[in-house]
């Protein structure tokens, strides 16, 4: 797993890249909350919401194919949840698409709504991580007084996730070079368990070495930071834009499109 899998575009210099990470984080959380709290069958409003992250991704020069490939990679989990809708809600509802009106089971509307909300919130999340370096995001969270232990855990997770995934790939490659035939379910399971055990032990060894490296540089349990951040006029402009956009949807668009309409 290469680091560019996640943060390939985070080092850009667009308007959104230069914003304070706290502002972007809070905007993403607020925006996602508005999306998730929209009605269970308010599908048309989701299209309006999608304009926000879509515009950010385009403006920040993030290829949409990069974002949608990653959304597709995680969508199976949500797909299972969404597809359960039609099984328990079969009451027909009228749906209008322009001049055409037809009947559709409520469960299918829920299914589309869940997938829509998932797509819009994931686009928002990718707009955040593709325009913010993870270190800046952590610095922002730290300034927002999130527990330091959580910040450290997230930082270590991000730092060593790639090391761990590389090790997994090396182990799998070593296995495939010596695996000449299918060994049957039981034997394959035993081998997989042994590989997981080996990975676990190596992870513990690595954590011990990291701890020694930290102690060797005077670490006594307290993290010190020299990160400084400040809100600029650009950030205020962005906050105002987000508030106006959400206000327009909430009070300008939603009252007219809040029903079960596509």
């Amino acid at each position: 797993m290469h680091h560019s899998y996640l943060d390939k575009y985070a080092d850009g210099d667009s308007f959104f890249h230069c914003l304070d990470s706290r502002v972007k984080f809070l905007a993403a959380v607020a925006f996602s909350a508005f999306v998730l709290l929209s009605g269970p069958k308010a599908i048309a409003v989701l299209f309006c919401f999608a304009v926000g992250p879509f515009a950010v991704l385009i403006w920040a020069d993030i290829p949409l194919s990069f974002v949608f490939r990653r959304i597709l990679a995680v969508c199976p989990f949500v797909l299972i949840l969404a597809l359960s809708g039609p099984f328990y809600d079969r009451l027909p509802e009228n749906v209008a698409v322009g001049p055409y009106v037809f009947s559709l089971a409520g469960g299918w509307l829920r299914c589309i709504s869940i997938l829509g909300k998932f797509t819009v919130t994931m686009m928002t999340l990718f707009a955040l991580v593709c325009t913010t370096r993870f270190a800046d995001l952590l610095a922002g969270l730290e300034k927002m007084r999130l527990p330091q232990v959580l910040i450290i855990q997230l930082g270590m997770l991000y730092r060593y996730l790639f090391v761990l995934m590389d090790r997994v790939h090396h182990i799998l490659r070593a296995r495939s070079t010596r695996k000449l035939r299918n060994l049957g379910f039981r034997r394959e399971t035993e081998i997989a368990a042994a590989m997981a055990g080996s990975l676990f032990i190596r992870s513990i060894e690595t954590s011990q070495k990291i701890h020694i490296a930290m102690q060797a540089r005077g670490f006594c349990g307290q993290f010190h930071s020299m990160r400084t951040m400040e809100i600029t006029r650009r950030d205020i402009f962005f906050i105002a834009g987000v508030i106006i956009f959400l206000g327009l949807i909430q009070w300008g668009v939603k009252p007219f499109m809040g029903g079960a309409f596509l």
Binding site: F134, A135, Y160, K209, M214, G218, C220, H224, S225, M226
Partner: peptide, 24 residues
């Protein structure tokens, strides 16, 4: 340390190099 990945644990190189002096 033998393995640089064990030595470099902070999110950025700058913070990693600053880790020791701040602890001092």
């Amino acid at each position: 340390m033998e393995e640089p990945d064990d030595q470099l644990f902070m999110p950025t190189l700058y913070e990693d190099v600053a880790f020791g002096p701040l602890n001092m």
